[in-house]
Simulated assay, not measured.
Amino acid sequence: MRVGVYPGTFDPLTLGHMDIIRRGAKLVDKLVIGVATNPSKSPMFTLTERKIQVGREVADIPGVEVVEFDELLMNFAERLGATIIVRGLRGAGDFEYEFQMTGMNRALNEDVEQVFLMADVALQPIASKLVKEIAVYGGDIRKFVPPQVAADVVARVAEQGLRGS
């Protein structure tokens, strides 16, 4: 069985993420969505909330499982028996970051390949950070995230009084 991992913070899950998940799931027998902690980010949603959100949105995609993780990606992949890391690319900025990460990951575990999927052209501008910013300033995010995720984000903005002026 070929196992792949698609890691990310998914805060929030976007239509771009969903595109990569659907396409990545076709490359492997089992695709594990690794919902990660990330000490360099301040998430809007807790790790458990993000796992639930992602799980809800991928429930209809065969062979996809959602797992939380808080460890080195290569250790996580090895523990799962994964041989492929799936990553999405939107543009040159993503490439520079991913190029560096690939080198580091390769040094940690050369048996795990990294596969890059270009995001659908229509979805390339979407970034979780921008979705949150648009929501905080009262913009309509329904074009960028699944409907229930949009509702979750709007509710969180209202709940935390994050709305800007």
Rank of each mutant, 00 (worst) to 15 (best):
P39M: 00
Q114Y: 15
L117M: 14
V121F: 06
D120W: 02
A122K: 14
M104K: 02
V58M: 12
I33H: 14
L15Q: 11
P43R: 07
I20V: 09
A25S: 15
A107T: 12
G161Q: 08
V131T: 05
V145G: 10
E113T: 05
F116Y: 13
V5R: 08
D140L: 01
F69R: 01
G16A: 12
K30A: 05
G55Y: 02
S165M: 10
L130K: 08
V154P: 02
V3D: 01
F116A: 15
N105F: 10
E65K: 12
T46L: 04
D60H: 13
D60A: 11
L27Y: 11
Q160N: 06
L72M: 13
Q160W: 13
T14N: 11
N105M: 01
I84T: 12
E71K: 09
A77P: 09
A135H: 05
D29M: 10
G34S: 13
E78F: 08
G164Q: 01
R79G: 06
G161H: 14
G139C: 04
I141T: 07
M104D: 10
E68R: 04
P62K: 12
G161W: 01
A158C: 01
G88H: 08
V67S: 10
E110M: 01
Q124K: 14
G161S: 06
V66L: 06
I61E: 04
V136Y: 00
E68G: 03
V121E: 15
L31F: 07
G91Q: 05
D111Q: 11
A82R: 02
A92W: 03
I134K: 03
N75C: 07
V35P: 10
V115D: 01
L130H: 13
N38M: 08
T37W: 01
V136T: 12
F76D: 08
L47C: 13
E68W: 06
R163V: 11
I84C: 05
A151D: 13
D11E: 00
L162D: 02
M74N: 00
I20E: 02
K132A: 12
L72Q: 12
R106W: 14
G8N: 03
D111R: 15
F10E: 03
D152P: 01
G24E: 08
V54H: 10
R79C: 05
K26S: 12
L117E: 05
P39C: 04
R163L: 15
L108S: 13
A82Y: 13
P39Q: 11
P43M: 04
I52H: 05
V157W: 15
Q53S: 14
P12A: 04
P12F: 14
V35Q: 11
V35L: 07
M104V: 12
D29Y: 08
D111F: 11
